[in-house]
């Protein structure tokens, strides 16, 4: 019952690890969005949530797990991209889609992925390692993350960039979600169309959800 040494270097092995890490990130994104919805309930609800989350010692374990998933996804994407480029050294003069296969989302996975990488870096700098204000909730001093959020989203350009990145996220996951299941061998004439719809609904949900939070925060100023 041992994973053979060449599983990770095989094309399918790499894709399956990429798929499973992608699915993990999809799950994280949903929980993050639900947390963000507390912004609508005001500073106390949001700050209490953020405080409860970050004061739990298990957060470090979660961060390491999340970070490694992200890095693994990224490194494997880079490796497969380079291999794919090497597999076709001379391109076509007149390549045309059949219109029955590749989609805008599937063709732009690398680009939307790079946008998301830039987004995550900026996001962490701004919010995780950004300005720390303090507020008091029921006698306890907590970080006023709400204030930081409102501050950043007072800039309309920041809101535009944020929404743009969320559209990229939606496009990326609209292909990624169904691709993940295919890579793990889950394909069925009855369920695959349903899986594609769920992937699309998920993509719309995260894009609209995160963007709504950003626009709401902008309107608070």
């Amino acid at each position: 019952m041992m994973v053979s040494h060449n599983y990770l270097t095989s094309s399918i092995g790499k894709k399956q690890i990429m798929a499973i890490t992608g699915l993990g990130l999809v799950g994280f994104t949903v929980s993050h969005l639900i947390g963000n919805f507390l912004l609508f309930l005001g500073p106390d609800a949001f700050n209490t949530y953020a405080h409860t989350l970050t004061s739990n010692p298990l957060i470090y374990l979660a961060e390491v797990g999340l970070g490694s998933m992200f890095l693994l996804h990224l490194v494997l994407a880079a490796i497969t991209q380079l291999q794919n480029r090497a597999a076709r050294p001379i391109g076509y003069l007149a390549k045309k889609s059949t219109g029955r296969g590749e989609t805008f989302a599937s063709k732009t996975m690398a680009y939307t992925g790079l946008i998301l990488l830039a987004f995550v870096i900026i996001h962490l700098i701004n919010f995780k390692f950004g300005s720390v204000y303090e507020s008091t909730i029921e006698g306890e001093t907590v970080r006023d993350l709400y204030k930081t959020v409102i501050e950043y989203f007072s800039n309309p350009l920041y809101v535009v960039w944020y929404c743009f990145a969320m559209v990229a996220l939606g496009i990326h996951t609209s292909h990624g979600f169904q691709s993940t299941l295919q890579t793990w061998g889950l394909r069925h004439p009855k369920y695959t169309p349903m899986i594609e719809i769920i992937g699309m609904l998920y993509a719309i949900f995260v894009t609209v959800g995160f963007s709504a939070c950003a626009i709401y925060c902008y309107l608070q100023n």
Binding site: I12, T80, G101, G185
Partner: peptide
């Protein structure tokens, strides 16, 4: 190269070979 499930292969295949074969291979390989 590595498959990333674009499905252009299925769309261009003169024999209409289905993508479910790729899913089966992914399972068999795992």
């Amino acid at each position: 190269g590595n498959c990333s499930n674009h499905a252009e292969c299925e769309a261009s295949c003169p024999k209409d070979i289905n993508l479910s074969n790729i899913a089966r291979t992914n399972r068999e390989f795992f």
